[in-house]
């Protein structure tokens, strides 16, 4: 049912790697390492500033993909892959967008399951890709029925 979405992309959205958001995020995963939150340590580091933890892009807005209306309940997160060319730096602006890479259905124990592969991108001011984040979302039959009846 998401077959028509394959290849579709969201409109890019500008996000700031905000100092307060990085600190709050680092604390929420029990990782208040000075490289993330101590300004002085950041300044003296090889990065010249603080960096963000690798799963920080969870916070970013990647825009909406037209026609892809996922419920916020009933989805199972199957896989997550982050790829980085370098760490995210506190204070920088990252342009984010998302793309539907694939969709397929498979018969499982709990009926027909949908597998949706999404890929998120983050680019810096120079237009270089800083990271990508791929996720595999598993959608069960009852959720699929609910979405289709909308």
């Amino acid at each position: 049912m998401f077959n028509d979405s394959i290849g579709k992309r969201s409109e890019p959205v500008k996000n700031i790697v905000e100092r307060g958001a990085v600190k709050k995020f680092a604390l929420s995963i029990g990782d208040p390492h000075p490289i993330f939150i101590d300004e002085e340590v950041g300044r003296r580091s090889r990065y010249g500033t603080n960096i963000a933890p690798p799963t920080f892009p969870r916070v970013f807005d990647f825009g909406t993909i037209e026609g892809l209306n996922l419920p916020n309940k009933g989805l199972i997160h199957g896989e997550q892959i982050y790829c980085y060319n370098r760490p995210l730096k506190v204070g920088e602006e990252i342009t984010c967008y998302a793309e539907v890479k694939d969709y397929y259905e498979k018969k499982g124990k709990q009926g027909e399951m949908g597998f949706l592969a999404l890929k998120n991108f983050g680019t810096d001011a120079a237009g270089e890709i800083v990271f990508t984040a791929q996720q595999l979302v598993i959608i069960n039959e009852s959720v699929r029925r609910m979405v289709m009846s909308k």
Partner: peptide
């Protein structure tokens, strides 16, 4: 949240950012 656990797990590497970085981080829930 699966991502809470994934976020936590990455802290094993937090002491190492002066000599390198996580290039790929791949998880199955």
């Amino acid at each position: 949240h699966g991502m809470w656990t994934m976020g936590n797990l990455a802290k094993l590497f937090s002491n190492l950012y002066e000599i390198g970085f996580i290039e790929e981080y791949k998880i199955r829930f």
